[in-house]
Write a protein that binds this DNA or RNA. Sequence first.
DNA 1: CAAATAAACTGACGTGCGTCAGTTTATTTG
DNA 2: CAAATAAACTGACGCACGTCAGTTTATTTG
Lengths: 231, 231
Amino acid sequence: MIKNNLTSCTVSNCNPCDCFDKLSQEELDLIKKNEVIVKYKKGEIICKQGTFASHIMIVQKGLVKVFIDGNTNTLILRIVPTGGMLGLTSLAENSSILKYSALAYVDSEIKLIESNTFKDIVSKNASFALEIINILSANKTQINGRFYCLTYKQSYGKLADILICLADNIFKQTEFELSLSRKDLGELSGMSTESVIRMLKKFKDDKIIDMKGKTIKIIDYPKLQEISELG
Amino acid sequence: MIKNNLTSCTVSNCNPCDCFDKLSQEELDLIKKNEVIVKYKKGEIICKQGTFASHIMIVQKGLVKVFIDGNTNTLILRIVPTGGMLGLTSLAENSSILKYSALAYVDSEIKLIESNTFKDIVSKNASFALEIINILSANKTQINGRFYCLTYKQSYGKLADILICLADNIFKQTEFELSLSRKDLGELSGMSTESVIRMLKKFKDDKIIDMKGKTIKIIDYPKLQEISELG
DNA sequence: CAAATAAACTGACGTGCGTCAGTTTATTTG
DNA sequence: CAAATAAACTGACGCACGTCAGTTTATTTG
């Protein structure tokens, strides 16, 4: 059987910003005229579920969480690092209302581009559109994998996934200062805060990770991968 | 708080085939030259995870399940009825290998369109591309909702979701002959076959549904919705 | 149409993990 | 910098649901 390498990781291996390479100077200028860069403080809401979707958002600097606010629970859909893009779903015809919220984990700079401008360009520049399709597809593939994992893996596997994802894709190093709370880790992996705490402790006791304050260091990366694969 | 109406439903409320309206006669002809209609018998594999993605598939007639085959478990991603489209993710650059399989629940007719042809057209016709973006976006929004539900709802809620989805979107009536096995229902909702059986029985005992052989009839639709909402 | 295979069902059992109800440690904020 | 608030942590408890090991009922198939 082919190894399928499914993980709960929230980041797709596709750089959204590459799509701008497909634009003409004219189109780039048009975007420039309809964009604005906004600074958000740590903890500030960038966009809110239920409001009108009006902008494509590009994380210039910082770290953002995208999440669904349910009646009783919260599910984090993605953690978006610098270079990431959000709001693409608002390009669709009948989706003017946001189905998710976004919040800055740390002080962040977001470039806002008017949806209408963006859409105009998409509807005229097919190779740009194809790039957007690429991004959406990569995103869909990634979410399917995560879906599988959150449904079938048990908590140790899910948490291992998240730690690996944070190290590989978000912070790009095995030691990082965690901007996410234990509650966030829970909402990322669909488990309770208390369970996250217990499992992190178990990982620490087993010398797989080390924790000091907000800093997490992965000591035994292969072991973590093994846990992720076993589920 | 705004009611968010999240369900585990697997069908997005967007008709994929509308996208062909955006094509010129020339483009339609080009597709016609590169398409073929294949009949699949009940139970036959239409495409297999791990193989090369080569076609866009459109369900002309029948019922198809799209699923991820994990090491230990199977997760059904979507149930695709007549008019549905699959294989769009293969438009993306680096995704030549299928990340899922598809299988015919009942005797089905599938129109296969060469991915390259399809992609050529997308890369030249921007308004067609925008339609594809619409489909992908709708699909993404739908999967996010389902994601939330499978993560946080408990089994009665998940099963209620599936029954409502089947009635509303797949069979379009409250009484239908179930082409899916109990195992399928489990793989749709991320629960064990035994649990599905027990819960269906509970629904029957509570006079919410009726079952005779393979036929399921929803008696108390509002109650089912209530269970779905309560989770 | 009998034998084989698969699907549907049943009961007993165990446990992973959520919930609750706290305490302790950080972090904010006037 | 003290008071307030939030985050991190701990232990006890329970149950929802998966697993296992069957039996019964459909469905295939030679």
